[in-house]
């Protein structure tokens, strides 16, 4: 390497500074939530907690443990996420595989039927009326069945199969007396761990964060997912606060409730944040597969 010129150094300095700033801007709010959740709520409210937690208290977390709704939400969200993701994966992988087979008659027609839905849809009300006519309103099933397939993910998986499963492999297997089912389950699936990982992440995070379907189709609180309870705790109460003029007692109660909010943010995002580092290596792969034209 030749020595760096002056201009090059200036560029590197500016670039490093801007990126370091971005790093701080993105990381600080997340870090602040963590330290605020274990600090004395009064200190947090007065702006005394900035870089390190003040005296550590666990009151917020104790309140969370005692909060029944949250655990109902947790249980429901776990159920929806696991069952929903299993359904997503089975439908996406099977249909993507058959659509990846160039020898299947009608492949382009089916592909057209699938892709058209990405550009046009019936919209909220017709979908609501359909769900209603199927008697799915306020059922566990609606949270699992709605959105069972994302056409975008089918296209990603199909592109993956087309580019990684060689035609010769299929031909060799057929010579060995293999049929399409066996080939798909015994050979294609074991070779597709990367795409299965990517799809699992996309779908599972989608279910974990699901809010829209829940607010439209669920009525009974016992079926609410975590996100609906989070909305009540984090957003609706907050708005009530802004609407009222508060006396001092209310203010103290408010401040304590606040420390619970920071804790709730952490507790609710924990499963995703724990999995995140393990899954990170697949992100690039997923986006890359998606960006190749099928």
């Amino acid at each position: 390497m030749t020595r760096k010129s002056h201009g090059e150094k200036v560029f590197d300095t500016i670039n490093n500074t801007i990126l370091a700033l971005i790093l701080i801007i993105v990381a600080y709010p997340l870090y602040f939530v963590v330290i605020a959740s274990i600090s004395d709520p009064i200190d947090v409210a007065l702006g005394r907690v900035i870089l390190i937690p003040s005296k550590i208290v666990w009151d917020g977390y104790k309140k969370i443990l005692a909060h029944k709704d949250l655990w109902i939400g947790y249980k429901n969200t776990f159920t929806y996420t696991i069952l929903g993701t299993l359904l997503n994966l089975s439908l996406t992988l099977t249909s993507a595989y058959s659509l990846s087979r160039k020898d299947m008659p009608g492949r382009n027609l089916f592909m057209g039927i699938f892709t058209f839905t990405m550009f046009f849809g019936g919209g909220l009300i017709p979908t609501y009326l359909l769900v209603k006519s199927l008697n799915l309103i306020d059922t566990y099933a609606v949270m699992i069945v709605l959105g069972a397939v994302s056409v975008w993910n089918v296209i990603i998986a199909r592109t993956f199969f087309q580019s990684t499963i060689p035609q010769e492999l299929l031909e060799a297997a057929i010579v060995d007396g293999c049929n399409d089912f066996l080939f798909f389950f015994r050979i294609v699936l074991p070779l597709s761990k990367a795409i299965i990982a990517v799809l699992t992440i996309y779908y599972a995070v989608g279910h974990w964060n699901q809010f829209f379907n829940a607010i439209i189709y669920l009525r009974n609180r016992n079926k609410y997912p975590l996100q609906l309870f989070l909305r009540e705790i984090l957003i609706q109460n907050q708005f009530n606060e802004e609407m009222q003029i508060m006396d001092d007692n209310a203010l103290i109660a408010q401040t304590i409730a606040m420390s619970m909010k920071y804790g709730v943010i952490i507790v609710s995002s924990l499963p995703v944040l724990i999995l995140y580092p393990f899954l990170q290596k697949y992100f690039m792969k997923g986006v890359m597969i998606g960006s190749i034209k099928g």
């Binding site: 709010p29 602040f32 409210a45 909305r231 984090l234 408010q254 995140y276």
Partner: peptide, 21 residues
Amino acid sequence: FISTVVIVGMMSVFLSPTTGI
């Protein structure tokens, strides 16, 4: 990967006129 509810929740907690940072 953070849900929209939590993002908006963080905004309203950070920006609260009484207790927000």
